[in-house]
Design a protein around this nucleic acid. Structure first.
Lengths: 250, 250
DNA sequence: GCAAATTTGTCCGTATGTATC
DNA sequence: AGATACATACGGACAAATTTG
């Protein structure tokens, strides 16, 4: 009631000096709400009208704020269902890097090269710890993934790339450092998105790839860090070479 | 005029089957526009009305799409001025990781620990290449930053953290791998955001920090990879220790 | 299976703040 | 200072998706 509101000003007492946009305050407000109530990924958030009233903003502003937070995977929205706390994944990194790779027609190969280099750095830098911390169960699953790659070899390739992705995720999993695993898979995703646009993604090297993966498993089985590092070198060298080759073609 | 629109359908001829939201199509449309015209960071984008007409969407949908792209730093908006191609920075990664660190009251220390570990991995994994590729000019600037840290020591601390940040960015710069540098800085930013909330950020260890930074510079000057790695170990060990200590306090 | 209720998606019209010329 | 172009914000209305009785 009392919708009279003689003044033009809405209801808010705040002068709305707004050095920063209102939607940013809403973003911070929603973040604070999540932190204050110690919510976890998957937990429900108040519906849009409730957020509007609680934060003193219109639905447009609230929705724009929600869009920002969904882009960061801090909140997740299901149409006709509700708004929830997101998974806090690195999806934003993937989107951002992938676009960067697609954008620059000159140094896009540089982006790819950097990407692969970091992945190699993770695995080679952790060689000692990895060969000593991979348990029998994980080694067995690594072997199964190599077998899967052999079978999916000439096929659509979908199973092949999935097995490859899972292999490297599993490889760094025993470190207890989730960030390394997530960055590694994120970079892998970016590579898969960008590579087809650069003609560096050929299926001719599948046999060699499978062979080096097998050598990695063998090295881990024998806890041989040197052989492990050597196998990684032989695995990543061709990738680097392919990128350099494609770059030269331009 | 002609707002009659006998059918319920808007104006678009497209049936708008829309398994995915319209704003997502707008996001893809703007991305395509940037790629198609090979725009660079800072280049102007069409104004909102133009985008609405070009993509067949209302202002709301276009604006929400722009918010998503802004969060990823793919576009940048200046109020009352226009929208432009963004810098493609890793700001989204910083926001996302920082929130993850603030969110988990149990394993937030794990996030910090992972962060520092990756940074150390970058610098130690590249030790050989770094000591051999840092030129005299860069070494001189590294020394100046250490000096700056000494001066800013007891002060507000603002100059101290800035110098520290610049030091590590500069340290990995000669690799020619922008991604490593940007990730390293991004993690540093996350650390600075999250650390104060965990009581791991004390000023007591400034003297020791300065000393190890000096040792790093000395090692680089003498192209001594072993001493370089040792200095890094001594630099990061206390940080790990502080995090573990803070974790134990909980 | 249907209908109602809830929630998000999209649209429009309008008013305001901001930057440029 | 005025005019123009642009982004920001509001509020109401209807469409679409999902759940529930």
């Amino acid at each position: 009631m009392a919708v009279e509101q003689g003044a033009v000003r809405p209801v808010a007492a705040a002068p709305r000096t707004a050095r920063q946009p209102l939607r940013q305050e809403v973003v911070d407000g929603i973040k604070s709400y999540i932190l204050r109530n110690q919510l976890r990924p998957g937990d429900p958030l108040p519906a849009e009208p409730a957020l509007c009233e609680a934060l003193g903003a219109s639905r447009s502003s609230v929705r724009e704020a929600i869009r920002i937070l969904t882009a960061l995977d801090i909140v997740e929205v299901r149409h006709g269902h509700g708004t929830y706390v997101g998974r806090l994944s690195l999806s934003a990194l993937v989107e951002s890097l992938a676009f960067r790779g697609l954008l620059s027609p000159d140094d896009d190969f540089q982006v790819m090269s950097d990407l692969v280099e970091v992945r190699e750095l993770f695995e080679r830098g952790m060689a000692e710890r990895l060969v000593n911390s991979l348990d029998a169960g994980r080694i067995e699953r690594l072997q199964l993934l190599v077998d899967a790659m052999r079978e999916a070899g000439g096929g659509a390739g979908h199973g092949f790339v999935d097995a490859d992705r899972t292999f490297h995720t599993l490889l760094v999993s025993p470190l207890g450092n989730d960030l390394i695993g997530q960055l590694s898979t994120a970079f892998w995703d970016v590579y898969v998105i960008v590579a087809p646009h650069l003609d560096v993604f050929t299926h001719e090297h599948e046999a060699a790839t499978i062979a080096t993966h097998q050598r990695i498993v063998d090295a881990v089985r024998e806890r041989d860090a040197a052989a492990f590092a050597a196998a990684l070198e032989d695995h990543y060298a061709p990738v680097r070479h392919r990128i350099a080759e494609a770059r030269a073609r331009r």
